[in-house]
Design a protein around this nucleic acid. Sequence first.
DNA 1: GCAGGTCATCGAAGCGCTTCGACGCGAAGG
DNA 2: CCTTCGCGTCGAAGCGCTTCGATGACCTGC
Lengths: 333, 333
Amino acid sequence: MRTVTIADVAKHAGVAVSTVSYVLSGKRAISATTRQRVLDSVRVLGYHPNAGARALASKRAKVIALVLPLRAGMNLPVLMQFATSVVTTARQYDHDVLLMTADEGADGLHRVAASALVDGLLLMDVEIHDPRVPLLRKLAEPSVLIGFPADPEGLTCVDLDFAHAGALCADHLADLGHREIALLGAPRVVYERGTGFAERTMAGFVEAARRHGIEADARPCEESFDEIHAAVKLLLDERPGLSGLVVHNEAAAGHVLGALRILGRRVPEDVSVVAICPDDIAERASPALTSVLIPAEDVGRQAVRLLMAKLEGQAVPESTLLEPRLTIRESSR
Amino acid sequence: MRTVTIADVAKHAGVAVSTVSYVLSGKRAISATTRQRVLDSVRVLGYHPNAGARALASKRAKVIALVLPLRAGMNLPVLMQFATSVVTTARQYDHDVLLMTADEGADGLHRVAASALVDGLLLMDVEIHDPRVPLLRKLAEPSVLIGFPADPEGLTCVDLDFAHAGALCADHLADLGHREIALLGAPRVVYERGTGFAERTMAGFVEAARRHGIEADARPCEESFDEIHAAVKLLLDERPGLSGLVVHNEAAAGHVLGALRILGRRVPEDVSVVAICPDDIAERASPALTSVLIPAEDVGRQAVRLLMAKLEGQAVPESTLLEPRLTIRESSR
DNA sequence: GCAGGTCATCGAAGCGCTTCGACGCGAAGG
DNA sequence: CCTTCGCGTCGAAGCGCTTCGATGACCTGC
């Protein structure tokens, strides 16, 4: 059973090959009757256009690259959510997704772009000084970044508005009447890498607290139970008046609650806790955490849309910030 | 700056196009001097073969599909680890990876296979009665499954030996002298879906306990702290003599420790706990968990190897079971 | 009634690569 | 010395598709 080609369809429908092509692409007007005949033949024969041939002739592979970071300190569930929404959205635009890991580096990007394997690139977790950025600027293939490098000039970047997310937490706690609050952030290594989002959250948090005229304090936070326990204890010892805690570290959120329990602080009676994390983690915790959602799905969807727009040659904004959303649950009052 | 083609390389090196092709593919002998000249030209011009053209002419896309499940109850970190190792290993074989989600179903598989977008398929999380299995049997493109359907006849399947993993936990606890043990498994929905691995773990666990002549009990386990707390309490009430607990649910492992702490049971003094989970989760817990590793990386690597062997036309075993490995940490004695 | 315009369709020229058969040349064998 | 055989290389024929220009057929309007 040889594979069905466009020529088979053409013969079966009694038309020229080019007519079949035009029916399928819609790039020229075709009479309703012919169109229907062709479509029927396609169905009957079970025709699927050969991707390679199509790519070769049209110079469009209908594939985009998704470059995921796969390092320590990354938040895996969020990453998966993001990847899923990218794939799903791309399919809506009739594109497929080639999965790459960041460890192929700039060479890898160059390879898939130069070989015309993909039409465009989506990069996650771009760093402040990312060696791939100069390449992206040069590349003919359009790209969209998740996260912001130092200089987004000439690029297209999408991200959650982390500064706003941090501010939202501070606002919420301030509105509840807390006068002394703190933020526990990502592991130290994340700050050292300069991924940006962690700093921006802290900055937004501190700035909002200042605006409210309340005491705020922000520090990195490791992810093992013992380190978290120690960190929380230290924080409570140093700042006896502390009554509001923001956790921007999903792996840590559960452990922070455990530590507070052990240290004899009730949540939310003694300490209000707000997490910046996906909803499922917040809901699974006990008490359920008031949280600011990291809208991974929105980011993925938006990133693909922007990339598709660029593929169509449309102009798109250099920077797109997605608004965070606060959901109040049981851990704050 | 037009993109560099093989013809440009040929001209630059002063040879025929076919010679360049043979140098690059190694399918015919080429003299060392010519080879070097061609290779130099390739480097100088920055030539990258056009993927579409190559696929069209050679009928090999050098791309494999990776189909990930994206449903509730899945373990995301393991999934990511697995995906990473698939991508990395595929690259070693000079292949790229097309990411698909299971929600495209059998049609999606058919599409990518029929369009020659991919040369082979890797499916994760195959269910006992998976509607995609009949299609896979029919497809010309080779495939490898992670997990086992009811009838693996004619397929190629890889998985961790979950029965052995369950048994290993029971053996370990029995060897430590525990006479009454229990297993907390995946959420109920996973069993209902019939993914297989969860049942096999339980079966292996129960069977091993029977062999040792000790009391064992195995039940599903939800993932919220409150439900876990309730489940652990119930278990301890029902079975006062219980001194060994196996947790086969990574999202739950931390919560189980928390619940035991609240219920006043010390680990490992009162209750020994063994988890079946990735090492990082086990190490991050407090006390660090004795655990059986789910070797996601090995599974991914092995799956790609098998797929590559099939692409080469080699015969491969229908079923490959990876041996679990027990790491003793602080939570059992 | 015929120039001019539309609309639907066709044929053919590539797209950049692999691969097959052919060919020339020097070495080996009789 | 002539035949035979590899080895290294070349040329050309596709692979299956898109797209451009061309071609009729048919309609419109003066």
